[in-house]
Amino acid sequence: MVPDSAHSTEIPLHRLQPGQCAVVRRVDSDGDEVQRLKMLGVCVGRRVEVVRAGDPLIIRIFSSRIGISASLASQVWLELCTPGHCAMKTPS
């Protein structure tokens, strides 16, 4: 499901710059709070955007905004969307 080129460009969510768009590729850890994150939509295949960087940071997912501790965000790995390449459209 993860395209070959993806691994090299994976970055953790807390490193994503505001305005950049990326797609969740994997979520490490399975703790209660990560489960909560997934319930809110931060799970594999979803597109996220950072609204405010920092700790806690604010992300946009679908049309909702979620505040997350940076420690949690560091467990969410993303593939960046680049001009001409939307990570969302990678075949799964």
Binding site: L40, P56, I66, G67, S69
Partner: peptide, 9 residues
């Protein structure tokens, strides 16, 4: 404390 996850409606 548990890390923050909060929806901002």
């Amino acid at each position: 404390s548990q890390p923050l996850v909060i929806e901002l409606p």
